[in-house]
Design a protein around this nucleic acid. Structure first.
Length: 647
RNA sequence: GAGCUCGUAGCUCAGCUGGUAGAGCAUCGCCCUUUUAAGGCGCUGGUCCUGGGUUCGAAUCCCAGCGAGCUCACCA
């Protein structure tokens, strides 16, 4: 199976050196003085025949790479012939490249000559320039580069032979002394070269790096050492390596912040019999010995509050949550969340703590509270606070006619009447909205699309509120060519609070670019938070938004076991109505509350999203080392075995 | 789940009013002892994502699929 493939590919191998019949111009053939096509065929086959990688593997993209691998194997052999092991175990460096650069970047040529600095450093070759009997290369370590200068008369014949066998991407160690070149660049004048490891594959193009977004995610190892710059040409420009360095700093800063305030870091189950603490669909897994279905956690919330019951008054956890939802620039199925709980605190205390925390982390990570995100400068020290109802009123679109007032939200009837009026208003003032923007000429496409989606939104909310299609709503749906109701028709009208929250998200969220705390949420969307004493339909809860999306969610925790059980039952009722994100019953959690949870404030902060804000990365995948992607089909064989059977 | 855009050499990209594929980097060979996106000369490298269709002829047009990005929907 392999041999025919080799022969086939052999025909396309380079023929330059040995004329028309030559198979491949392998340096070792030259060195051994063997010539002629027959020998070459047998040589290539004999040594590729020893390689599991070349024979059986799917790591190669092409014959080009397969051949390159074979050539590099031969170079390794020649390196061994020069007396250096192909895969040595260590190298004793005296400095790291970042150390050398930071220490001697300002040293003058005269200083370096007068006081010779002998060094031994290791790194990956990221640029190499041979010039006859001398050459330059750039070694990279931890994202920092340092030039080396190799002269044949300084390193000797053998070492210079080795230098000529080096390729882009190889790891080497060198000893020598620092000097400055004619053009002033800090450089190591090399005295010895130690071969450390070979790059058997070709590096991406040296100027542009790895630009293909998909390749960058799939082969993050390449992306990282190529260190491609994100947001090039903008104030938010940042090499990808620095994104992840900053991510590490975000985690360290968060720990520093909470540790210094007496919080205890804990780890609670990520495999849970009941996936609770949030509204989301969980992943399911199975424990064989116990024959038990388990859920990957969607939140640590209920376990952390059990710990507060247990007397850990200040507790936090930083870990992964898993939600079986769609993927977007703000969503990855697994994401990192900080959750913390503080006994005897309420949501007002947490608002202050949140502002302090984000401020602190920004300073630790960036040395500034200002950051660039999606083309806007954001100041993480300047916060505004609005209630959800105020936010809806504030950002009610002018195209929709009159904005609601605070009393609009008091009763379902009031809200329904208001939404109906808005729908009528839209319908009469913008009769063209129902036409798709692609079919309308001479209009502002963005505005048109916005109006259209707002029309849809109101429609949907009315349907949800009422549980049926009124004639006007039906007419709009028909005009918009929407088959059936969107969202799906509920059997009963949904609670008022859910509609209000839906309107808020659609209308206000995109405006929340600068840090904003939105407080007082409807009870109906908050099964775990405490009611406001004077407004029982509303709870003491806030979310904070930066850059147009939600970063955190906090509330005064519900600690009345009886009320908690009732909320669970309501959630179960919603579940039965088809809402599979509604909360499940957790009797043990209710039991824990029955032992007495002190008044407690709790909050969750999305660490990935916070990192996005602090690094200017506009996609969550740019702050996750290995974001979830569809697997690539492994081999050409399985490719052919897959008929197009899916609809 | 829907819409838009993209998929050409290992990498970065041209070619897309249909005539059977090109550049730069990398690779390979030669020259070059202070270069730095080194330079010069020469060679090589492609199931143009996959499968159908239209056509005398498809990288190019049409359909379907696969993968990705963005926007929207859902959620955090």
């Amino acid at each position: 199976m392999f041999i025919p493939l080799l022969r086939e590919s052999s025909r396309r191998l380079p023929r330059s050196r040995f004329g028309s019949g030559a198979l491949i111009s392998l340096p070792f053939i030259h060195h051994q003085g063997i010539a002629g096509p027959e020998h070459e065929v047998s040589c290539l086959q004999s040594y590729t025949g020893k390689s599991h990688l070349i024979q059986g593997s799917t790591v190669f993209e092409s014959d080009f790479e397969r051949n390159l691998f074979a050539l590099r194997q031969e170079k390794l052999r020649q390196i061994e012939a020069l007396g250096q092991p192909a895969y040595p175990n260590s190298f004793a460096a005296t400095h790291s490249i970042p150390e050398l650069r930071s220490t001697y970047d300002n040293a003058t040529a005269e200083q370096l000559d007068a006081n010779r600095i002998n060094v031994a450093v290791a790194g990956r070759i990221m640029a190499i320039r041979l010039q006859g009997k001398a050459g330059f290369a750039q070694l990279q370590q931890n994202g920092v580069r340092l030039q080396i200068y190799v002269r044949k008369d300084a390193v000797g014949d053998r070492a210079f032979e080795l230098y000529k066998l080096l390729d882009l991407g190889d790891h080497i160690g060198v000893t020598g002394y620092l000097f400055r070149t004619r053009t002033g660049e800090l450089t190591i004048h090399v005295e010895t070269i130690t071969f450390l490891a070979k790059a058997m594959l070709a590096l991406p193009e040296k100027y542009h790096g790895l630009a293909d977004v998909e390749l960058r995610y799939r082969q993050r190892y390449v992306d990282l050492f190529m260190n491609t710059v994100l947001n090039e040409g903008t104030p938010a420009e940042i090499p990808i390596r620095d994104v992840f360095i900053k991510r590490a700093k975000v985690l360290a800063a968060l720990r520093k912040f909470f540790d210094s305030r007496g919080f205890v870091e804990v780890e609670t189950p990520m495999m849970q019999p009941i996936a609770g603490g949030a509204a989301a669909r969980p992943f399911v897994t199975h424990h064989n010995t116990l024959d038990l279905d388990l859920f990957l956690r969607i939140a640590p919330e209920l376990y952390l509050k059990r710990l507060v019951v247990g007397g850990i008054d200040r507790v936090y956890e930083i870990n992964r949550n898993f939600r079986n939802e769609g993927i977007s620039t703000q969503h990855n199925p697994e994401f990192t969340m900080l959750e913390f709980y503080q006994a005897y605190a309420n949501y007002w205390d947490l608002m202050d703590l949140t502002e302090e925390c984000i401020n602190f982390v920004a300073q630790e990570v960036n040395g500034s509270t200002k950051t660039w995100f999606n083309g806007t400068e954001i100041d993480l020290s300047q916060w505004q606070r609005l209630s959800m109802r105020e936010a809806i009123i504030k950002w009610w679109p002018t195209e929709f006619g009159a904005a609601p007032s605070l009393t609009t939200f008091a009763t379902p009837d009031g809200l329904e009447r208001f939404l109906n009026e808005s729908l009528q208003y839209l319908h009469t003032h913008y009769p063209q909205i129902v036409t798709p923007s692609s079919e309308v000429q001479g209009v502002d496409i963005e505005r048109h699309r916005r109006l259209r989606s707002l029309l849809l939104l109101i429609n949907g909310q009315l349907i949800l509120l009422r549980g049926d299609l009124t004639p006007l709503a039906e007419a709009v749906m028909k005009a918009l060519k929407i088959p059936g109701a969107i969202p799906p028709l509920p059997r009963q009208p949904q609670p008022l609070g859910k509609t209000i929250a839906g309107i808020f998200e659609a209308i206000a969220e995109p405006h929340l670019i600068q840090p904003t705390i939105i407080y007082d949420f409807p009870l109906a969307v908050s099964p775990l938070s405490k009611q406001k004493p004077d407004e029982p339909d509303w709870v003491e809860r806030f979310e904070f938004y930066i850059g147009g999306f939600e970063l955190g969610n906090a509330f005064s925790e519900l600690n009345d076991p009886e009320e908690q059980r009732k909320r669970f039952e309501q959630q179960i009722a919603q579940r039965l109505r088809g809402d599979d994100e509604a909360h499940q019953m957790d009797e043990d959690y209710v039991r824990a509350l029955a032992y007495g949870l002190p008044p407690t404030g709790g909050e969750g902060i999305g660490v990935d999203r916070l990192t996005m804000i602090l690094t200017g990365a506009s996609s969550i995948r740019d702050v996750i080392l290995f974001p979830l992607l569809r697997p690539r089909r492994a081999t050409p064989d399985t490719e052919n075995e897959q008929p197009q059977q899916e609809e």
